[in-house]
Nucleic acid binder design. Structure first.
Lengths: 225, 225
DNA sequence: CCAAAAGTGTTCCGTCTACACCCATGG
DNA sequence: CCATGGGTGTAGACGGAACACTTTTGG
Protein backbone atom coordinates (compact mmCIF):
# COMPACT_ATOMS: atom_id res chain seq x y z
CA UNK A 1 0.00 0.00 0.00
CA UNK A 2 1.48 3.32 -1.06
CA UNK A 3 2.21 6.12 1.37
CA UNK A 4 -0.79 8.05 0.08
CA UNK A 5 -3.23 5.70 1.72
CA UNK A 6 -1.38 4.51 4.76
CA UNK A 7 -2.19 7.41 7.01
CA UNK A 8 -5.94 6.98 6.49
CA UNK A 9 -8.44 4.74 8.16
CA UNK A 10 -10.57 2.06 6.65
CA UNK A 11 -14.23 1.77 7.51
CA UNK A 12 -16.87 -0.94 7.27
CA UNK A 13 -19.19 -0.38 4.33
CA UNK A 14 -22.54 -2.08 4.05
CA UNK A 15 -25.58 -2.00 1.81
CA UNK A 16 -29.19 -1.91 2.95
CA UNK A 17 -32.10 -2.71 0.68
CA UNK A 18 -35.53 -1.18 0.67
CA UNK A 19 -37.63 -3.77 -1.14
CA UNK A 20 -40.96 -2.50 -2.38
CA UNK A 21 -43.88 -4.72 -3.26
CA UNK A 22 -47.53 -4.19 -4.08
CA UNK A 23 -50.27 -6.37 -2.64
CA UNK A 24 -53.91 -5.89 -1.69
CA UNK A 25 -53.82 -2.42 -3.23
CA UNK A 26 -51.14 -1.42 -0.78
CA UNK A 27 -47.51 -0.51 -1.10
CA UNK A 28 -45.42 -2.70 1.17
CA UNK A 29 -41.83 -3.19 2.09
CA UNK A 30 -39.97 -6.27 3.14
CA UNK A 31 -38.43 -6.14 6.57
CA UNK A 32 -37.32 -8.57 9.22
CA UNK A 33 -36.13 -8.77 12.77
CA UNK A 34 -32.38 -8.60 13.22
CA UNK A 35 -30.95 -11.97 14.14
CA UNK A 36 -27.76 -10.67 15.70
CA UNK A 37 -26.38 -7.91 17.83
CA UNK A 38 -26.24 -4.99 17.74
CA UNK A 39 -29.95 -4.36 17.59
CA UNK A 40 -30.95 -8.01 17.80
CA UNK A 41 -34.72 -8.31 17.60
CA UNK A 42 -35.31 -4.87 16.13
CA UNK A 43 -37.06 -4.44 12.80
CA UNK A 44 -34.56 -3.90 10.07
CA UNK A 45 -34.00 -3.72 6.34
CA UNK A 46 -31.97 -6.54 4.92
CA UNK A 47 -28.38 -5.72 4.26
CA UNK A 48 -24.85 -6.97 4.20
CA UNK A 49 -21.27 -5.86 4.15
CA UNK A 50 -19.47 -4.88 0.97
CA UNK A 51 -16.59 -7.20 0.20
CA UNK A 52 -13.30 -6.35 -1.41
CA UNK A 53 -14.07 -8.39 -4.50
CA UNK A 54 -17.36 -6.77 -5.42
CA UNK A 55 -18.59 -3.34 -6.32
CA UNK A 56 -21.10 -1.68 -4.04
CA UNK A 57 -23.96 -2.30 -6.45
CA UNK A 58 -22.88 -5.93 -6.83
CA UNK A 59 -23.10 -6.25 -3.08
CA UNK A 60 -26.64 -4.94 -3.17
CA UNK A 61 -27.48 -7.40 -5.95
CA UNK A 62 -25.98 -10.22 -3.94
CA UNK A 63 -28.03 -9.36 -0.87
CA UNK A 64 -31.21 -9.02 -2.90
CA UNK A 65 -30.55 -12.22 -4.72
CA UNK A 66 -29.85 -14.29 -1.66
CA UNK A 67 -32.99 -12.97 -0.11
CA UNK A 68 -35.47 -13.20 -2.94
CA UNK A 69 -34.03 -15.66 -5.39
CA UNK A 70 -34.94 -13.25 -8.16
CA UNK A 71 -32.34 -12.72 -10.83
CA UNK A 72 -33.21 -9.72 -12.87
CA UNK A 73 -34.62 -7.19 -10.54
CA UNK A 74 -34.88 -3.47 -10.69
CA UNK A 75 -32.55 -1.69 -8.35
CA UNK A 76 -31.49 1.88 -7.78
CA UNK A 77 -29.20 3.60 -5.35
CA UNK A 78 -30.91 5.77 -2.75
CA UNK A 79 -27.83 7.24 -1.13
CA UNK A 80 -25.09 6.86 1.40
CA UNK A 81 -25.75 7.10 5.12
CA UNK A 82 -22.69 7.97 7.11
CA UNK A 83 -23.36 9.28 10.58
CA UNK A 84 -20.71 8.30 13.07
CA UNK A 85 -23.01 6.50 15.44
CA UNK A 86 -25.55 5.11 13.00
CA UNK A 87 -24.39 1.62 13.86
CA UNK A 88 -24.24 1.12 17.61
CA UNK A 89 -21.43 -1.41 17.41
CA UNK A 90 -18.83 -0.16 14.99
CA UNK A 91 -18.33 2.64 12.51
CA UNK A 92 -20.27 1.49 9.48
CA UNK A 93 -21.21 3.52 6.43
CA UNK A 94 -24.15 2.14 4.55
CA UNK A 95 -25.33 2.64 1.00
CA UNK A 96 -29.08 2.23 0.64
CA UNK A 97 -30.62 0.70 -2.46
CA UNK A 98 -34.23 0.33 -3.32
CA UNK A 99 -35.65 -2.53 -5.34
CA UNK A 100 -39.03 -3.11 -6.88
CA UNK A 101 -40.33 -6.64 -7.10
CA UNK A 102 -43.49 -8.41 -8.03
CA UNK A 103 -44.66 -9.98 -4.81
CA UNK A 104 -45.70 -13.15 -6.59
CA UNK A 105 -42.19 -13.70 -7.91
CA UNK A 106 -40.97 -13.95 -4.37
CA UNK A 107 -40.56 -17.43 -3.03
CA UNK A 108 -42.47 -17.60 0.25
CA UNK A 109 -40.18 -20.31 1.52
CA UNK A 110 -37.16 -18.05 1.18
CA UNK A 111 -39.12 -15.36 2.94
CA UNK A 112 -39.74 -17.56 5.93
CA UNK A 113 -36.17 -18.80 5.97
CA UNK A 114 -34.93 -15.24 6.24
CA UNK A 115 -37.64 -14.23 8.70
CA UNK A 116 -38.86 -11.47 6.42
CA UNK A 117 -42.33 -10.01 6.28
CA UNK A 118 -44.25 -7.65 4.02
CA UNK A 119 -45.35 -4.62 5.99
CA UNK A 120 -47.69 -1.90 4.79
CA UNK A 121 -45.94 1.44 4.52
CA UNK A 122 -48.47 3.33 6.57
CA UNK A 123 -48.03 0.84 9.32
CA UNK A 124 -44.28 0.67 9.81
CA UNK A 125 -42.93 -0.32 13.21
CA UNK A 126 -40.01 1.56 14.79
CA UNK A 127 -36.87 0.47 13.05
CA UNK A 128 -33.21 -0.20 13.71
CA UNK A 129 -30.74 2.65 13.37
CA UNK A 130 -31.46 5.00 10.48
CA UNK A 131 -33.47 2.49 8.48
CA UNK A 132 -36.62 4.49 8.80
CA UNK A 133 -34.88 7.44 7.25
CA UNK A 134 -33.63 5.27 4.41
CA UNK A 135 -37.18 4.16 3.73
CA UNK A 136 -38.48 7.72 3.69
CA UNK A 137 -35.83 8.75 1.25
CA UNK A 138 -36.46 5.75 -0.99
CA UNK A 139 -40.15 6.48 -0.94
CA UNK A 140 -39.65 10.07 -1.89
CA UNK A 141 -37.44 9.01 -4.75
CA UNK A 142 -40.01 6.52 -5.89
CA UNK A 143 -42.80 9.07 -5.84
CA UNK A 144 -40.77 11.31 -8.11
CA UNK A 145 -39.68 8.62 -10.50
CA UNK A 146 -42.96 6.83 -10.89
CA UNK A 147 -44.40 9.82 -12.71
CA UNK A 148 -41.83 9.97 -15.46
CA UNK A 149 -40.33 6.51 -15.66
CA UNK A 150 -42.00 3.19 -16.34
CA UNK A 151 -40.97 1.56 -13.11
CA UNK A 152 -44.42 0.76 -11.82
CA UNK A 153 -44.57 -2.38 -13.96
CA UNK A 154 -41.79 -3.85 -11.83
CA UNK A 155 -44.26 -4.10 -8.99
CA UNK A 156 -46.94 -5.86 -11.04
CA UNK A 157 -47.24 -9.19 -12.79
CA UNK A 158 -46.40 -9.23 -16.50
CA UNK A 159 -50.09 -9.06 -17.23
CA UNK A 160 -52.07 -6.56 -15.24
CA UNK A 161 -55.34 -4.69 -15.37
CA UNK A 162 -55.61 -0.95 -15.58
CA UNK A 163 -57.36 -0.90 -12.25
CA UNK A 164 -54.36 -2.61 -10.68
CA UNK A 165 -52.03 -0.07 -12.23
CA UNK A 166 -54.20 2.78 -11.03
CA UNK A 167 -54.42 1.46 -7.49
CA UNK A 168 -50.65 1.20 -7.47
CA UNK A 169 -50.33 4.86 -8.41
CA UNK A 170 -52.80 5.82 -5.79
CA UNK A 171 -50.95 3.83 -3.16
CA UNK A 172 -47.61 5.41 -4.00
CA UNK A 173 -48.90 8.96 -4.16
CA UNK A 174 -51.31 8.61 -1.30
CA UNK A 175 -54.25 10.12 -3.18
CA UNK A 176 -56.96 8.96 -5.49
CA UNK A 177 -57.02 9.83 -9.16
CA UNK A 178 -59.82 10.06 -11.68
CA UNK A 179 -60.32 6.80 -13.52
CA UNK A 180 -61.13 8.32 -16.90
CA UNK A 181 -58.26 10.75 -16.87
CA UNK A 182 -55.90 8.01 -15.82
CA UNK A 183 -56.98 5.73 -18.63
CA UNK A 184 -56.75 8.55 -21.14
CA UNK A 185 -53.10 8.97 -20.27
CA UNK A 186 -52.55 5.24 -20.63
CA UNK A 187 -54.04 5.30 -24.10
CA UNK A 188 -51.45 7.86 -25.18
CA UNK A 189 -48.67 5.44 -24.34
CA UNK A 190 -48.57 2.83 -27.08
CA UNK A 191 -46.13 0.65 -25.20
CA UNK A 192 -48.81 -0.20 -22.66
CA UNK A 193 -50.49 -2.82 -24.77
CA UNK A 194 -53.93 -4.27 -24.35
CA UNK A 195 -54.01 -8.05 -24.76
CA UNK A 196 -56.94 -10.26 -25.64
CA UNK A 197 -56.79 -11.85 -22.22
CA UNK A 198 -59.36 -11.19 -19.55
CA UNK A 199 -58.88 -11.29 -15.83
CA UNK A 200 -61.94 -12.44 -13.99
CA UNK A 201 -60.44 -12.67 -10.56
CA UNK A 202 -61.51 -9.26 -9.39
CA UNK A 203 -64.84 -8.70 -11.07
CA UNK A 204 -67.70 -10.58 -12.62
CA UNK A 205 -67.50 -8.78 -15.88
CA UNK A 206 -63.76 -9.28 -16.21
CA UNK A 207 -61.05 -6.75 -16.98
CA UNK A 208 -58.73 -6.59 -19.96
CA UNK A 209 -55.13 -7.53 -19.21
CA UNK A 210 -52.37 -5.22 -20.33
CA UNK A 211 -48.67 -5.71 -20.88
CA UNK A 212 -45.70 -3.36 -20.84
CA UNK A 213 -43.76 -3.61 -24.09
CA UNK A 214 -40.16 -2.76 -23.30
CA UNK A 215 -39.00 -2.62 -26.90
CA UNK A 216 -41.77 -0.28 -27.94
CA UNK A 217 -40.94 1.89 -24.95
CA UNK A 218 -37.29 2.08 -25.84
CA UNK A 219 -38.14 3.33 -29.29
CA UNK A 220 -40.27 6.17 -28.09
CA UNK A 221 -39.91 7.13 -24.48
CA UNK A 222 -42.81 9.31 -23.61
CA UNK A 223 -43.87 8.48 -20.13
CA UNK A 224 -46.08 10.78 -18.14
CA UNK A 225 -48.58 9.93 -15.47
CA UNK B 1 -15.02 -5.63 18.17
CA UNK B 2 -17.84 -8.14 18.35
CA UNK B 3 -17.87 -11.35 16.37
CA UNK B 4 -20.48 -9.91 14.04
CA UNK B 5 -18.02 -7.58 12.39
CA UNK B 6 -14.79 -9.44 12.63
CA UNK B 7 -15.20 -11.58 9.59
CA UNK B 8 -15.78 -8.58 7.34
CA UNK B 9 -13.38 -6.28 5.60
CA UNK B 10 -12.94 -2.58 6.03
CA UNK B 11 -12.59 -0.31 3.04
CA UNK B 12 -11.28 3.20 2.43
CA UNK B 13 -14.08 5.70 2.06
CA UNK B 14 -13.57 9.09 0.52
CA UNK B 15 -15.65 12.08 -0.53
CA UNK B 16 -15.35 13.97 -3.80
CA UNK B 17 -16.83 17.40 -4.35
CA UNK B 18 -18.31 18.81 -7.51
CA UNK B 19 -18.15 22.55 -6.94
CA UNK B 20 -20.34 24.60 -9.26
CA UNK B 21 -19.86 28.26 -9.95
CA UNK B 22 -21.30 30.78 -12.39
CA UNK B 23 -19.15 33.32 -14.21
CA UNK B 24 -19.28 35.08 -17.59
CA UNK B 25 -22.72 33.58 -18.20
CA UNK B 26 -21.27 30.11 -17.97
CA UNK B 27 -21.62 27.26 -15.55
CA UNK B 28 -18.23 26.17 -14.31
CA UNK B 29 -16.74 23.65 -11.97
CA UNK B 30 -13.67 23.78 -9.85
CA UNK B 31 -11.05 21.17 -10.62
CA UNK B 32 -7.34 20.72 -10.16
CA UNK B 33 -4.48 18.47 -11.11
CA UNK B 34 -3.77 15.66 -8.68
CA UNK B 35 -0.64 16.30 -6.68
CA UNK B 36 0.01 12.70 -5.75
CA UNK B 37 -0.13 9.17 -7.07
CA UNK B 38 -2.14 7.39 -8.20
CA UNK B 39 -3.17 9.58 -11.10
CA UNK B 40 -0.66 12.34 -10.36
CA UNK B 41 -1.09 15.16 -12.86
CA UNK B 42 -4.56 14.15 -14.00
CA UNK B 43 -7.49 16.52 -13.68
CA UNK B 44 -9.53 15.70 -10.63
CA UNK B 45 -12.28 16.83 -8.32
CA UNK B 46 -11.16 17.73 -4.87
CA UNK B 47 -11.72 15.13 -2.25
CA UNK B 48 -10.46 13.51 0.89
CA UNK B 49 -10.80 10.45 3.04
CA UNK B 50 -13.53 10.03 5.60
CA UNK B 51 -12.14 9.79 9.09
CA UNK B 52 -13.47 7.77 11.98
CA UNK B 53 -14.41 10.84 13.98
CA UNK B 54 -16.60 12.52 11.37
CA UNK B 55 -19.73 11.69 9.45
CA UNK B 56 -19.53 11.40 5.70
CA UNK B 57 -21.21 14.75 5.19
CA UNK B 58 -18.91 16.34 7.74
CA UNK B 59 -16.00 15.05 5.73
CA UNK B 60 -17.40 16.73 2.64
CA UNK B 61 -17.86 19.96 4.59
CA UNK B 62 -14.31 19.75 5.82
CA UNK B 63 -12.92 19.29 2.32
CA UNK B 64 -15.03 22.11 0.94
CA UNK B 65 -14.11 24.37 3.79
CA UNK B 66 -10.39 23.80 3.56
CA UNK B 67 -10.57 24.45 -0.14
CA UNK B 68 -12.77 27.50 -0.32
CA UNK B 69 -12.71 29.06 3.11
CA UNK B 70 -16.47 29.44 2.87
CA UNK B 71 -18.42 28.54 5.97
CA UNK B 72 -22.06 28.22 5.12
CA UNK B 73 -22.25 26.66 1.74
CA UNK B 74 -24.91 24.67 0.03
CA UNK B 75 -24.11 21.01 -0.30
CA UNK B 76 -25.98 17.94 -1.36
CA UNK B 77 -25.11 14.29 -1.77
CA UNK B 78 -24.91 13.04 -5.32
CA UNK B 79 -24.32 9.38 -4.58
CA UNK B 80 -21.86 6.64 -3.80
CA UNK B 81 -19.42 5.34 -6.36
CA UNK B 82 -18.18 1.89 -5.59
CA UNK B 83 -16.64 0.05 -8.50
CA UNK B 84 -13.81 -2.23 -7.47
CA UNK B 85 -11.16 -0.63 -9.62
CA UNK B 86 -12.30 2.97 -9.57
CA UNK B 87 -9.17 3.90 -7.67
CA UNK B 88 -6.11 2.45 -9.34
CA UNK B 89 -4.19 2.16 -6.08
CA UNK B 90 -6.44 0.69 -3.46
CA UNK B 91 -10.07 -0.25 -2.99
CA UNK B 92 -11.75 3.08 -2.28
CA UNK B 93 -15.45 3.83 -2.22
CA UNK B 94 -16.28 7.45 -2.75
CA UNK B 95 -19.34 9.51 -1.92
CA UNK B 96 -19.81 12.43 -4.27
CA UNK B 97 -21.22 15.73 -3.07
CA UNK B 98 -22.05 18.77 -5.08
CA UNK B 99 -21.77 22.31 -3.79
CA UNK B 100 -22.92 25.61 -5.18
CA UNK B 101 -20.88 28.69 -4.47
CA UNK B 102 -20.77 32.29 -5.51
CA UNK B 103 -17.52 32.61 -7.40
CA UNK B 104 -16.79 35.97 -5.84
CA UNK B 105 -16.92 34.51 -2.35
CA UNK B 106 -14.04 32.29 -3.25
CA UNK B 107 -10.65 33.52 -2.15
CA UNK B 108 -8.39 33.47 -5.21
CA UNK B 109 -5.34 32.99 -3.05
CA UNK B 110 -6.75 29.76 -1.66
CA UNK B 111 -7.55 28.70 -5.19
CA UNK B 112 -3.95 29.12 -6.28
CA UNK B 113 -2.64 27.44 -3.16
CA UNK B 114 -4.69 24.37 -3.97
CA UNK B 115 -3.94 24.52 -7.69
CA UNK B 116 -7.62 24.69 -8.56
CA UNK B 117 -9.17 26.23 -11.63
CA UNK B 118 -12.63 27.11 -12.84
CA UNK B 119 -13.42 25.18 -15.99
CA UNK B 120 -16.43 25.66 -18.23
CA UNK B 121 -18.65 22.62 -18.25
CA UNK B 122 -18.79 22.30 -22.00
CA UNK B 123 -15.04 22.27 -22.09
CA UNK B 124 -14.08 19.64 -19.54
CA UNK B 125 -10.76 17.84 -19.94
CA UNK B 126 -10.50 14.07 -19.47
CA UNK B 127 -10.63 13.35 -15.79
CA UNK B 128 -9.20 11.02 -13.20
CA UNK B 129 -11.04 7.78 -12.45
CA UNK B 130 -14.84 8.13 -12.46
CA UNK B 131 -14.86 11.84 -11.75
CA UNK B 132 -16.39 12.64 -15.08
CA UNK B 133 -19.28 10.37 -14.28
CA UNK B 134 -19.72 12.06 -10.90
CA UNK B 135 -19.92 15.41 -12.65
CA UNK B 136 -22.52 14.19 -15.12
CA UNK B 137 -24.65 12.84 -12.32
CA UNK B 138 -24.33 16.03 -10.29
CA UNK B 139 -25.27 18.07 -13.31
CA UNK B 140 -28.32 15.99 -13.99
CA UNK B 141 -29.39 16.37 -10.39
CA UNK B 142 -28.87 20.09 -10.57
CA UNK B 143 -30.94 20.41 -13.71
CA UNK B 144 -33.82 18.69 -11.97
CA UNK B 145 -33.58 20.61 -8.74
CA UNK B 146 -33.08 24.06 -10.15
CA UNK B 147 -36.62 24.04 -11.50
CA UNK B 148 -38.35 23.41 -8.22
CA UNK B 149 -35.95 24.54 -5.52
CA UNK B 150 -34.43 27.95 -4.95
CA UNK B 151 -30.84 26.83 -5.25
CA UNK B 152 -29.84 29.10 -8.11
CA UNK B 153 -29.28 31.98 -5.73
CA UNK B 154 -26.38 30.07 -4.21
CA UNK B 155 -24.49 30.65 -7.42
CA UNK B 156 -25.13 34.38 -7.53
CA UNK B 157 -24.17 37.36 -5.37
CA UNK B 158 -26.70 38.42 -2.75
CA UNK B 159 -27.87 41.14 -5.12
CA UNK B 160 -28.38 40.09 -8.69
CA UNK B 161 -30.19 41.22 -11.81
CA UNK B 162 -32.93 39.26 -13.49
CA UNK B 163 -30.79 38.96 -16.57
CA UNK B 164 -28.09 37.29 -14.51
CA UNK B 165 -30.61 34.88 -13.07
CA UNK B 166 -31.96 34.10 -16.50
CA UNK B 167 -28.53 33.52 -18.00
CA UNK B 168 -27.83 31.13 -15.17
CA UNK B 169 -30.94 29.13 -15.99
CA UNK B 170 -30.03 29.07 -19.61
CA UNK B 171 -26.54 27.88 -18.82
CA UNK B 172 -27.76 25.06 -16.61
CA UNK B 173 -30.44 23.87 -18.98
CA UNK B 174 -28.48 24.47 -22.13
CA UNK B 175 -31.25 26.34 -23.89
CA UNK B 176 -32.54 29.87 -24.11
CA UNK B 177 -35.78 30.95 -22.55
CA UNK B 178 -38.15 33.79 -23.32
CA UNK B 179 -37.35 36.88 -21.31
CA UNK B 180 -40.93 37.98 -20.74
CA UNK B 181 -42.16 34.57 -19.70
CA UNK B 182 -39.21 34.19 -17.37
CA UNK B 183 -39.84 37.51 -15.70
CA UNK B 184 -43.52 36.76 -15.38
CA UNK B 185 -42.68 33.67 -13.36
CA UNK B 186 -40.33 35.69 -11.18
CA UNK B 187 -43.10 38.17 -10.42
CA UNK B 188 -45.24 35.36 -9.05
CA UNK B 189 -42.63 34.58 -6.44
CA UNK B 190 -42.81 37.25 -3.79
CA UNK B 191 -39.64 36.10 -2.09
CA UNK B 192 -37.60 37.33 -5.04
CA UNK B 193 -37.57 40.95 -4.01
CA UNK B 194 -36.76 43.95 -6.10
CA UNK B 195 -34.49 46.44 -4.36
CA UNK B 196 -34.05 50.12 -5.08
CA UNK B 197 -30.47 49.49 -6.14
CA UNK B 198 -29.35 49.65 -9.72
CA UNK B 199 -26.53 47.75 -11.33
CA UNK B 200 -24.85 49.71 -14.08
CA UNK B 201 -21.98 47.35 -14.74
CA UNK B 202 -23.61 45.47 -17.57
CA UNK B 203 -25.67 48.11 -19.33
CA UNK B 204 -25.91 51.82 -19.83
CA UNK B 205 -29.45 52.01 -18.71
CA UNK B 206 -28.86 49.98 -15.58
CA UNK B 207 -30.76 46.97 -14.23
CA UNK B 208 -32.68 46.64 -11.00
CA UNK B 209 -31.01 44.47 -8.39
CA UNK B 210 -33.01 41.70 -6.75
CA UNK B 211 -32.58 39.76 -3.56
CA UNK B 212 -33.72 36.32 -2.41
CA UNK B 213 -35.64 36.57 0.85
CA UNK B 214 -35.14 33.29 2.67
CA UNK B 215 -37.67 33.99 5.40
CA UNK B 216 -40.39 34.90 2.94
CA UNK B 217 -39.59 31.75 1.00
CA UNK B 218 -39.87 29.54 4.06
CA UNK B 219 -43.31 30.88 4.78
CA UNK B 220 -44.69 30.09 1.38
CA UNK B 221 -42.68 27.72 -0.72
CA UNK B 222 -43.92 28.00 -4.24
CA UNK B 223 -40.98 27.70 -6.53
CA UNK B 224 -41.40 26.96 -10.17
CA UNK B 225 -39.25 27.96 -13.08
C1' DC C 1 -27.44 59.86 -32.04
C1' DC C 2 -27.02 55.19 -31.79
C1' DA C 3 -25.78 50.82 -29.87
C1' DA C 4 -26.90 47.80 -26.19
C1' DA C 5 -29.30 45.96 -22.63
C1' DA C 6 -33.72 46.62 -19.63
C1' DG C 7 -38.24 46.35 -19.25
C1' DT C 8 -43.21 45.33 -20.27
C1' DG C 9 -48.89 42.40 -21.99
C1' DT C 10 -51.73 39.94 -24.80
C1' DT C 11 -53.37 36.23 -27.51
C1' DC C 12 -53.54 31.55 -28.61
C1' DC C 13 -53.30 26.83 -28.06
C1' DG C 14 -52.79 22.63 -25.84
C1' DT C 15 -53.20 20.20 -21.51
C1' DC C 16 -55.31 19.01 -17.29
C1' DT C 17 -59.52 18.60 -14.59
C1' DA C 18 -64.05 17.77 -13.37
C1' DC C 19 -67.78 15.08 -14.05
C1' DA C 20 -71.99 10.63 -14.81
C1' DC C 21 -73.72 6.93 -17.01
C1' DC C 22 -74.01 2.25 -19.37
C1' DC C 23 -72.00 -2.57 -19.62
C1' DA C 24 -71.22 -7.38 -18.54
C1' DT C 25 -71.61 -11.08 -15.52
C1' DG C 26 -71.67 -14.33 -11.39
C1' DG C 27 -74.23 -15.46 -7.80
C1' DC D 1 -82.25 -9.34 -11.03
C1' DC D 2 -79.00 -6.91 -8.75
C1' DA D 3 -74.53 -5.87 -6.87
C1' DT D 4 -69.92 -5.22 -8.37
C1' DG D 5 -66.28 -3.54 -10.76
C1' DG D 6 -65.16 -2.33 -15.99
C1' DG D 7 -65.33 0.81 -19.34
C1' DT D 8 -66.14 5.31 -22.00
C1' DG D 9 -66.36 11.30 -23.81
C1' DT D 10 -66.94 16.17 -23.38
C1' DA D 11 -66.79 20.92 -21.90
C1' DG D 12 -64.60 24.40 -19.36
C1' DA D 13 -60.53 26.16 -16.79
C1' DC D 14 -55.92 26.88 -16.53
C1' DG D 15 -51.23 27.38 -17.52
C1' DG D 16 -47.48 27.65 -20.79
C1' DA D 17 -45.62 29.41 -25.23
C1' DA D 18 -45.13 32.65 -28.79
C1' DC D 19 -44.39 37.12 -29.92
C1' DA D 20 -42.34 43.08 -30.69
C1' DC D 21 -41.74 47.32 -29.29
C1' DT D 22 -40.34 51.26 -26.03
C1' DT D 23 -36.97 53.02 -22.60
C1' DT D 24 -32.63 54.63 -20.90
C1' DT D 25 -28.08 56.34 -21.21
C1' DG D 26 -22.90 56.11 -21.92
C1' DG D 27 -19.88 56.80 -25.31
Amino acid sequence: MSKYYIEHQKIFVSVDCIIFGFEDNQLKILIGRRQMDPGCGEWSLSGGFVRHDESVSDAAYRVLNQLTGINQLFMRQVGAFGNIDRDPGERVISIAYCALINVKDYDKKLMEEHHMEWVTLNDLPPMYSDHRQMIEQALQMMREKIKTEPISFRLLPKLFTLTQLQKLYEAVNGEEVDKRNFRKRIKDMDFIEKTQLIDKSSSKRGAALYRFNTKAYNEEQKFKL
